[in-house]
């Protein structure tokens, strides 16, 4: 149950509250230069979501099984050359950025082949944008967040598993899609407006983006509120008097005690 709550919170956080485009500023290039048509923007968003998910799976697998110190695959291979202890300490995380970017490039290649085979008309309308997804910051950012939650935790038991990483990546892509579809819709309307000449093009898009970011700021605190609503409290919150409180405290701690 706790796991499901965790997943739901990660999903909502990645899609709405900490939106990749409007909060973390990744994926701005397609956001500002996005087509003025909603259907093109939606297609681009879907492609990015697809690529992010594949790239996240690849980078999670490689990080967990090869890169971190004590990872199974590198430990097994190093075990042929070094003692078991030294093999367990091999830390390949310095290669992570290089590996991620090549994983992303492979994911994009794979998606390109898939789209070319099964959706040829879509492939033609995408043109050069599909290979350009490799340089989309959002994808590398998702991989980096996953790495931060595996490598950067003090306690190895807290490291993220595949489920959480997948959810973060997929819903990050969903948030990206939401942002650029809204932006494309607004730009369709902007074309009919009388924008001052210096502001036409990128400048007005950025200002509109700022107002959008302001609107999305309204979602702050939704995840902590949801977490409080969904997580059952461990013990009654009511503190009657200092003595009773102490008794409650002692009872709870002695019940759950298991000291290492």
């Amino acid at each position: 149950m706790n796991y499901v709550i965790d997943i739901v919170l990660i999903a909502i956080s990645a899609a709405l509250i900490n939106n990749f485009v409007l909060h973390y500023f990744v994926g701005i290039c397609p956001f500002v230069g996005v087509s003025r048509r909603v259907d093109m923007a939606f297609g681009m968003g879907c492609a990015v979501t697809f690529v992010i998910t594949i790239a996240a799976v690849l980078s999670w697998s490689i990080t967990t099984f090869i890169l971190i110190p004590g990872a199974p695959l590198s430990r097994w291979i190093a075990g042929f050359f070094l003692s078991a202890e030294a093999a367990a300490k091999i830390d390949l995380t310095i290669l992570s950025y290089i590996i991620y970017i090549f994983a992303i490039a492979s994911a994009v290649q794979f998606v390109e082949m898939y789209v070319r085979k099964f959706f040829p008309s879509l492939y033609k309308s995408f043109g050069v944008f599909l290979p350009l997804i490799t340089t989309n910051c959002a994808i590398l950012f998702a991989c980096l967040m996953i790495m931060a939650n595996i490598v950067g935790v003090d306690n190895p038991a807290d490291a993220w598993d595949l489920g959480r990483s997948l959810v973060l990546a997929a819903f990050g892509g969903v948030g990206f899609t939401i942002a650029i579809v809204i932006m494309a819709g607004i730009r369709e309307e902007l074309d009919l407006c009388d924008v001052p000449k210096p502001f036409q093009g990128a400048a007005i898009t950025l200002i509109v983006g700022g107002i959008l970011a302001l609107a999305f700021m309204g979602f702050t605190g939704v995840d902590s509120g949801l977490k409080k609503a969904l997580t059952p409290e461990p013990v009654a919150q009511v503190v009657v008097s200092p003595d009773a409180g102490q008794a409650l405290q002692l009872a709870r701690v002695s019940k759950s005690l298991s000291v290492q």
Binding site: N2, D154, N155, A157, D158, P234, S256, L257, S258, V259, Q260
Partner: peptide
Amino acid sequence: FIAVEKQGKKVFYNVFKADMDGKCVGWVVK
């Protein structure tokens, strides 16, 4: 690392013990 069992799950706390002249003078919990 100090493990505490809560609702059936083990929760680990990162604790630092501070000693001066061999005696414990305090704890810092992260």
